[in-house]
């Protein structure tokens, strides 16, 4: 079951595509457990932490970022070949991330608006999750990922079981924590009912409605929730933004956005 001794430490690589490195930083932020982690895992590739490079194969590859540039496609396929277990981390890698907003926009116009020399920029017209390109063994959601879920995944690897990562509404975490519902008592917009848990209701704890950065939970009734948000008097642009924000390219958020986009014109 568990690996024994230093020699059998799993070889771990951390790789990134289009992303802000925030999820990689979450790994480094596990200050209390870092020593424990490096004593049990052989971290051989980690651009955010070390310039040391080491070729595959790897036991575990953590992938951050979305597939956004032409060369990414071959790179992720090669990485998959080198990985026994491939884990995507963060909203970009699991759902396309904020970059995926361009999937509904005019790519060339975006590029021209942002870069001084758009002709130097080679990028794909869409930003897509890693799972659209290769098989993914596990996902850690969020922008950024939750350190607790990361630790659970690492621990589960050591113990030899499946990580216990629940897929339930953020509302469940609010209720267990005793947070008063921001929607019912505060009239705030919140993505909690359709978003998967794992953040321990971080934003609602600080009196902010959920931004949906962990993405849709299994069976999320996004259709009913968007209808309710509209019914409560929010303009379609606002509802569009709520669903599109971090994980809008993931179904069923994607269908809601497409539908709202049609009515928005």
């Amino acid at each position: 079951m568990a690996t024994s001794g230093r020699t059998a430490r799993p070889r771990v690589a951390v790789a990134k595509f289009a992303s802000c490195d925030g999820c990689q930083l979450t790994i480094l932020d596990l200050e209390d457990q870092l020593l424990e982690i490096v004593s049990r895992f052989d971290i051989v590739e980690f651009p955010e932490a070390t310039s040391r490079r080491s070729p595959g194969p790897y036991d575990i590859v953590f992938v951050e970022g979305s597939i956004s540039a032409p060369e990414h496609i071959d790179q992720i396929k090669e990485l998959r070949k080198q990985a026994r277990v491939l884990v995507t981390i963060g909203a970009c890698a699991t759902a396309g991330g904020i970059q995926a907003l361009r999937n509904w926009a005019d790519h060339d116009a975006y590029r021209a608006a942002i870069y001084a020399h758009p002709e130097w920029i080679e990028s794909l017209a869409t930003a897509t999750p890693v799972s659209e390109h290769v098989k993914v063994d596990a996902e850690l959601r969020g922008c950024p990922i939750d350190p607790g879920q990361l630790l659970e995944l690492l621990t589960a690897v050591l113990v030899g079981r499946r990580p216990q990562i629940r897929d339930e509404a953020v509302c469940r975490e609010c209720k267990r924590k005793g947070i008063v519902c921001l929607v019912v008592a505060g009239g705030q917009a919140c993505m909690g009912p359709v978003t998967t848990s794992g953040c321990n209701a971080l934003c609602p704890t600080y009196d902010r409605g959920c931004f949906g950065c962990f993405g849709p939970r299994a069976g999320a009734n996004a259709k009913s929730w968007s209808a309710e948000l509209l019914k409560s008097g929010r303009p379609p642009e606002e509802v569009w933004g709520l669903f599109a924000g971090f994980t809008g390219y993931a179904e069923p958020f994607r269908s809601v956005i497409t539908e709202l986009g049609k009515s928005k014109g």
Partner: peptide, 30 residues
């Protein structure tokens, strides 16, 4: 069910609902 978003808030707020699940938390040293 088409309206219900299955957030479970009714069950969490209910003073009699009693369903539970268990989760295992392991120390890293196993």
């Amino acid at each position: 069910a088409e309206r219900c978003v299955e957030c479970g808030n009714c069950t969490m707020s209910c003073p009699t609902c009693f369903c539970t699940s268990v989760i295992e938390q392991s120390d890293m040293d196993g």
